[in-house]
């Protein structure tokens, strides 16, 4: 690990200013992904700004009837919240499908959205990776790609976003609240938060340097039955091959977002409109522009079948 200096920020704006004014600086919250990457020297910050004292660890009701989840709320606390379990079950289900108990106790809401891909070529510093080292190429293309992306990818990068939580937030139309160094706040809808790789896969979201996530907001409850089904190689503690977050209504309408398939939570609203016609129609629209490799083409069919299972369960 490279040497770094460390400070604990007292206010969100001060934290943002400390990172914005220092090119080598990064925020640290739970640290479960950042420290992993720092040990491998994939991340090499020269200064860490610890945000744990900012008081952003509460879940409050919004005046619109939704919830504002402080960025430091742990994954465990978010999954266990009574209001989340009752009205946003897809979110609780997605969180408890991810990581391990120890990691969920430490990992935070904002940090979960900012975690890096688990593409093995990103993690192996001997391999070419445009995300880790822009312009170096992509060893995943033509490599072992069974786990990697099938849609939204580019000729520069076929990595996926690893989060389960974010898939549920996407199906719930959550928004990400931030503050910058000048203290200015903004809200970014989750569908516009993560970038597609194009030819700049090292840029993974729309945050500006030093811009700090302060909260994630959920709109008022949308009803329906909530599902999160994750297909993986082990029964627990493994990343998704494919996951589906779905909220389905009694009349067969609904919405779905897919994980394990793309560089960001994958949801196509025009595909949601096909829900009453069945999983085949939804998948045909949602994955119309899929460009899988020969090793991961199964993911497109698996996504459709997983959704079909949830639609059947909703009817039963």
């Amino acid at each position: 690990m490279k040497a770094f200096t460390y400070e604990r920020a007292r206010t969100p704006a001060a934290a943002a200013a400390a990172v914005a004014g220092n090119k080598g600086a990064k925020f640290i919250a739970g640290g479960t992904n950042l420290l992993d990457l720092m040990k491998l020297e994939i991340e090499t910050p020269t200064h860490l700004v610890d945000v744990q004292d900012l008081g952003l660890d509460r879940i409050e009701e919004t005046k619109e009837g939704g919830l504002r989840i402080g960025t430091l709320v742990s994954n465990t606390a978010l999954a266990a919240d009574r209001r989340v379990r009752k009205d946003y079950g897809v979110l609780t289900r997605a969180i408890v499908a991810g990581a391990s108990g120890q990691l969920r106790n430490k990992a935070t809401t904002g940090g979960n959205l900012l975690q890096r891909t688990r593409c093995p070529y990103f993690y192996d510093t001997n391999q070419a990776c445009n995300k880790r080292k822009p312009g170096s190429g992509c060893a995943a293309i033509g490599g072992f790609s069974r786990q990697l992306g099938v849609i939204g990818t580019s000729d520069s990068c076929i990595a996926t976003h690893p989060s389960d939580m974010a898939i549920a937030l996407r199906v719930l139309d959550a928004a990400v609240e931030t503050v910058d160094a000048s203290g200015k706040a903004r809200s970014i809808v989750i569908g516009e938060f993560h970038r597609l790789p194009g030819n700049t896969p090292h840029l993974e979201n729309v945050l500006q340097p030093g811009e700090l996530i302060t909260a994630v907001t959920l709109p008022k409850p949308i009803g329906g039955r909530h599902f999160y089904h994750k297909v993986r190689d082990r029964a627990s503690y493994a990343f998704a091959l494919v996951s589906v977050a779905a909220v389905l209504n009694e009349d067969g309408s609904g919405r779905a977002a897919f994980g394990g398939v793309a560089p960001r939570p994958w949801r196509v609203e025009a595909a949601d409109a096909q829900m009453r016609s069945g999983a085949g129609a939804v998948a045909k629209t949602a994955f119309a522009e899929a460009r899988p490799t020969h090793e991961n083409a199964f993911k497109v069919a698996l996504a459709e079948r997983t959704l079909a299972a949830l639609i059947a369960e909703n009817r039963a």
Binding site: G31, L35, L103, K106
Partner: peptide
């Protein structure tokens, strides 16, 4: 409970 290896 946490992983003490992933915490400074």
């Amino acid at each position: 409970r946490i992983n003490s290896c992933l915490s400074l």
